[in-house]
Design a protein around this nucleic acid. Structure first.
Length: 370
DNA sequence: ATTGCTCAAGGG
């Protein structure tokens, strides 16, 4: 299985030895956080609100007019986990998108351990090969090549891990990765999502809710893909990929080694589309979440999740209304205010002050005029 | 140039 490795082409003096060998195994995935230091924040802080008149003088160049979060954050698409984070707390997710996140070391360590466990599981099934890439086209090409190698495995009822999914949902393009797909003894296609936990305890209800939402969304997107609803045109429209842009040499080499004679990204997209729709892949029958303890790998619990498409779609629609700029972001309900205790943005968040608890107790007798 | 723009999930 191929894994993309970023290559610095921007700095001319580093052109010599920056290549990663394309057969390098990924032994350490520790991403250096130093790159986040150079994030330039497009200051959304100083928008002059003026007097409410529509600022729609069409030829004002800069986006002074109101824009959706998708535009403000310069997003062409969202990750599935963006929406599950949004399920946890919409405001926290919004803060994370606009401020470079400052994870505490403890939190980072838990995430890191989780990532390692997931990587170890993936390595049980196949080796990883690093393919140097320089463009987003290369990156998607590698993703497609991985899919092309996994689909036949799935078709012959094998087990695959880290399967990419993408598609348009409620007008917004979503990109994600399914942990694992396999068939049960009864021949049903089962999605298995692994969640590792720092403490050997069952997850709280709020955690389960979020995880259930995540796997339902995966099924929704995967099903749409095998049903031919996700076309190359839709993909290109949202991602602005250039199907004719030449692919990097390492990607082309990797494709050839995989037995795919493709010249362009467009070729690959067609191939993936055909493979997805002509392989007789079923929709996902069963959604399963497994919780295990990080340190001991002890099983903590297994959830079989009902699809409940209607509820899931209503939720997505509500979330997308935020992303499209149709409504303001919301914080958690009072009964979930405990989430704020571990939130990095609690001190700059205005939600708790303005919501429920106070406003109801602060107007005691104004209504009792009889 | 008026310039540009994404590896997803990782856990609570």
């Amino acid at each position: 299985m191929a894994e993309t490795g970023e290559e610095e082409t921007a700095s001319p003096e580093a052109s010599g030895f920056s290549d990663l060998s394309d057969s390098e195994f990924l032994e350490f995935l520790d991403l250096d956080d130093e790159s986040s230091a150079s994030v330039s924040k497009p200051g959304p802080s100083e928008l002059p609100e003026k007097d409410g008149k529509s600022v729609s003088l069409q030829n004002w160049k800069r986006g002074l007019d109101v824009s959706s979060p998708m535009e403000r954050f310069h997003l062409k698409y969202l990750y599935v986990t963006d929406l599950s984070t949004q399920n946890w707390c919409e405001l926290q997710m919004a803060f994370e998108k606009e401020l470079p996140d400052f994870l505490t070391p403890e939190k980072a360590a838990v995430l890191d351990t989780g990532a390692s466990i997931h990587l170890a599981r993936e390595l049980e099934l196949h080796d990883l090969v690093t393919v140097p890439i320089t463009t987003k086209e290369d990156n998607w090409a590698v993703k497609f090549l991985n899919m092309l190698s996994m689909i036949p495995t799935l078709q012959s009822e094998g087990c695959i891990r880290e399967f990419p999914v993408f598609g348009e949902v409620e007008g917004v393009f979503l990109v994600g990765v399914i942990d694992e797909l396999h068939y049960t003894a009864k021949g049903e296609l089962e999605l298995a999502e692994l969640k590792t936990r720092r403490r050997p305890m069952l997850p709280l209800e709020a955690q389960k809710k979020k995880d259930c939402f995540q796997v339902r969304l995966y099924k929704f997107i995967f099903d749409a893909m095998v049903q031919g609803k996700v076309t190359p045109e839709i993909l290109i429209h949202h991602t602005k990929l250039c199907p004719d842009k030449p692919l990097g040499p390492s990607v082309l080499r990797h494709a050839r080694q995989g037995g795919f004679s493709v010249k362009s990204l467009g070729d690959l997209m067609e191939l993936v589309f055909l493979s997805l729709t002509l392989s007789d892949l079923p929709v996902i029958d069963i959604l399963k979440i497994e919780y295990i303890h990080q340190e001991t790998a002890t099983a903590l619990g297994t959830e079989i999740v009902a699809f409940e498409e209607k509820e899931m779609r209503d939720k997505v629609q509500h979330y997308m209304a935020y992303w499209m700029g149709h409504r303001e972001p919301q914080g958690v309900d009072v009964e979930e205010a405990w989430k704020c205790r571990t939130c990095n943005y609690a001190d700059i968040c205005e939600w708790r002050k303005g919501s429920g608890v106070l406003s109801s107790t602060m107007e005691p007798q104004t209504k009792k005029a009889k």
